[in-house]
Amino acid sequence: MKSGQVNSGPNSSVSPGDRLFTGRVIGSIVTFSLISSICLIWLVTLVIEPMVTTTVQFTANGVIGFGFDLLITILILIALVHNSLDLMTTAAYRVKKPKMDKSVPKVKRFSLNETFQHLTLIASTGISALTGFTLMFYLSWGSSVAGYLGGLSQTLDIHYGSAIVMGVLVAYHFGYYSAKYLTNRLLKQPARFDINFHRKDISDLFASLKFYLGRGPKPKFGKYSYAQKFDYWGIYWGMVILGLPGLLIWSGGLNAEGGLAFIFHVKEALLAVLFLGVFHFYQVHFTPRQFPADLTLFTGVVSEEEMAEDHPLEVVGP
């Protein structure tokens, strides 16, 4: 690249002399490519191919199964395109990784309670996904994993155990924030649900797309960007859609395995894993800005500079 002046952009303490393909950018590209290709193969083999090669049966199960497949396909492809554009733009602007050493002033972003919730979420989701897919693909690769876990029934028990933990977490999570919100309102204190979607999120999405295509400035976000909200609701709402049919299957209801509850459970599980792979991991960890990891949810703090850059409206107000 010839030297010249770089347009100001996000985190634009850059100069034309800065390298474009740094280790962080290459790491981000490689990681994103690997995860995306795994997800794409899953998507094509497990969702798209059966969807296009199987005649839709006009029964409740058939139509819902087809609808779910279509939803998975659309969401994952949109997430892939969105994050590809984000990666190209973030890398092209040569954004710096936020400094987090002792010299940098920090602001609190997440409480210990939230950190604990996230750790529980990681553990229960990871174990549920591992045991769930082990059971789903039991007679192919799953059987080997089940062998390590102590056999089929033990794998199922572990799956149930992690599902209970996840269910308690979801109940606690929504209960806690709802109670907090209502209490604040009753006490006439500021009550905010920052994570809720607002009309601005839609305009932020389009503004971001414009920015990615070089046709506009980077939009300014509040405490959570539209992508973070999408990420959050995708995971937590997904757990509800996953968990309720899971409970039904466990109790043998709604036609149990092969029935409507099973379709919801299995398809949502697939969507959740693909979504985590394609969207969450990139947005949080593998973006060139944060690669290889963003530990904010564990440390609970971010630098003032990062906060001002990524969430300016939270710092200065709308």
Binding site: M1, K2, G4, Q5, V6, N7, G9, P16, L20, F21, V25, I29, V30, F32, S33, L34, S36, S37, L40, I41, S84, L87, M88, T89, A91, A92, Y93, R94, G214
Partner: peptide
């Protein structure tokens, strides 16, 4: 597939960066 995505992203980054440069 991974390589194809990687190459496309690499090219995309380079092209995008090139656009950002205002040549003297």
């Amino acid at each position: 597939v991974a390589l194809a995505i990687g190459i496309l992203l690499g090219i995309g980054v380079a092209l995008r960066a090139r656009k950002l440069v205002v040549r003297k």
